[in-house]
Amino acid sequence: MIAPANKPFLQLQSISKTFRRGGAETEVLHDISLDIANGEFISIIGHSGCGKSTLLNLIAGLTTVTTGAVLLEQHEVNEPGPERAVVFQNHSLLPWLTVYDNVRIAVDKVFAKTKSRAERHAWTLHNLDLVQMGHAKDKRPSEISGGMKQRVGIARALAMEPKVLLMDEPFGALDALTRAHLQDSVMQIHGRLGNTAIMITHDVDEAVLLSDRIVMMTNGPSARIGEVLDVKLPRPRNRLELVSDPHYIHAREAVLKFLYERHRYVEAA
């Protein structure tokens, strides 16, 4: 438990984001505030185009806030960095590097001064094994499946030993089986390493299964946090046992109601 005197690990302080293009201005995010504890797993859920990726990019430092601030351990975030590693929506592996080198480039950069060459090599292999991709280390991204690419993307992010792991629909483009398998891996790894994780998803079951809290966003423009749901399910969680768990059913229902009753997706005219 975090004592009240302690400052939160990651703080979003009344963030808003306005995009200007030519003369037109659109406020995508409006007054977003959230405190996240160390080690928490947060899901962000909301309809397409409401600004989830924008919010994640703000935390990553890839875009800058218009007003408000992102604070990580009391320091303002205003540029990207490896302590906030990102698993991108479309894996974003570098196609000219092998699977190994895609992870190694991150390892070399982050541990240039703290690990020896041999240690960096071992650490790269270790992270590939974590996502069961050690066997394909010499393949290029074009030679492996979508699910494998996504796993390498996760390995690359994990290998940076980030304080915060940011995932933008990490399993979005995968079939149900691969998806379930990777969700289990991420859950295991999170359980073992205890990183703070923020994951964007469209999938209600995924959100409930993985998260400590689910942040539900209202529709844009000027999206806000509509509701935050605590998921008080004990860990480790097992997807089969949870199906009939009253807590699980209740949480699932709450998210579905939010998305499909109170904040129905309105097609833009």
């Binding site: 990553a60 990207p80 960095g81 906030r84 990102v86 974003s92 950069k109 940076m160």
Partner: peptide, 12 residues
């Protein structure tokens, strides 16, 4: 932009 983002996160 994806590759630029990767480079930014890694602080190349």
């Amino acid at each position: 932009q994806d590759y630029r983002n990767v480079a930014d996160v890694l602080r190349l």
